[in-house]
Amino acid sequence: MAGEFTGLTDAEWAVIEPFLPEQPEKPGKGRPHAFFRDILNTILWVLITGARWIDVPKGKGFGARSTSHRWLGIWTTDGIWAELKALLMGQAHELGLIDWSRSSVDGSFAAGKGGGEDVQYGFKGKGVTLHALVDGNGLPLSVISTGAAESERAQVEPLIDQTELITGKPGRPRKRPDAIQGDKGYDSRELRALIRQRGITPMIPRRSWQNRKPPKGRPPNKPIDRWKVERTFAWLQRKYRRLVVRWERRNKYWAGFVTFAVCLLWANCLTGFLG
């Protein structure tokens, strides 16, 4: 989306539109409801540029900033963003675009200069931490946000639980990878046991301690590629500048931006595959 902002492409809109709620009916009197595509374009403009809501352009293809801001929170509270992500991931799963063989987990700090809900003082300063679980291709399976002081190890289980897919077919779709990679910050005997209980192989290096025995077992036959989750954070922060610094004081607006960005990554994946 380099250069002049044009909003959602026709291909992206064709992928996203079927999964959105129905457009409200036109009222008998008063101003008609704004089109959802204009609302999404406005939210997308703020997400990409990181600009203030008051700077939202006016004109064709854009919704009113107050209306767009309200819908951003409504769709978070009603679970529309989460359902949209699950539906897009379900379609990607049916097309074989999700690599379940090996996933990676990591966290990334976002400064919270405006303060607000869940903003805490952590090792890197005042802000929040985005935690992501990605598949073997680096596409996010689940992303959650916590205060900067929260433990990254404690977020692995919620990340696994929040990996949801909706395929529209009978039975439960797959939602667990074969293995999870993490850096030494996730080194924990309890965490390894918890991951194994879910039928997942933990691939977490051990921290070096004096008088500690070397790990047992064979080394992995494939090099560790945790860099893919770091690349995912680079995608999110380079494409969507609103995620670099958290200015939203309320969680529902911040979570809406984060989940919409994840939905856009999956929509781009599907448009690239479907042509």
Rank of each mutant, 00 (worst) to 15 (best):
A2W: 03
F5L: 04
G7R: 02
L8M: 02
A11R: 00
W13G: 04
V15D: 07
V15R: 00
P18S: 04
L20E: 11
P21A: 04
Q23V: 09
E25N: 09
K29G: 05
G30A: 13
R31D: 00
H33K: 12
H33V: 06
F36A: 13
L40M: 12
N41P: 11
W45S: 15
W45T: 12
G50K: 15
G50P: 14
R52D: 08
K58V: 10
F62Q: 00
R65C: 06
R65Y: 08
T67E: 13
W71L: 01
G73T: 15
I74H: 15
W75R: 06
D78G: 13
A82W: 14
E83G: 11
E83Q: 13
K85R: 15
K85D: 02
A86F: 06
M89N: 05
G90M: 14
A92I: 14
I98R: 00
I98T: 02
D99L: 06
D99A: 11
D106C: 07
D106V: 03
S108G: 14
F109V: 14
G114H: 09
G116Q: 03
D118Q: 03
G125H: 07
A132Q: 13
L133W: 10
N137T: 08
L139E: 00
V143T: 11
I144L: 01
G147I: 12
A149E: 09
E150Q: 04
S151E: 06
G168L: 08
D178P: 03
D183T: 12
G185E: 01
R189L: 09
A193W: 14
R198H: 12
R198Y: 06
R198W: 07
P202M: 03
I204S: 09
R206G: 09
S208Q: 04
S208L: 04
W209Q: 05
R212C: 01
P214A: 05
K216A: 13
R218V: 15
P219H: 10
P220D: 12
P220G: 08
P220L: 05
K222A: 15
K222Q: 10
P223A: 00
K228D: 00
E230M: 07
F233M: 15
L236T: 08
Q237E: 12
L243D: 11
V245Y: 01
E248Y: 02
R249A: 10
K252W: 00
G256K: 08
F260T: 01
V262A: 10
C263T: 02
L265S: 03
W266N: 10
W266I: 13
C269Q: 12
T271L: 08
G272H: 11
F273E: 10
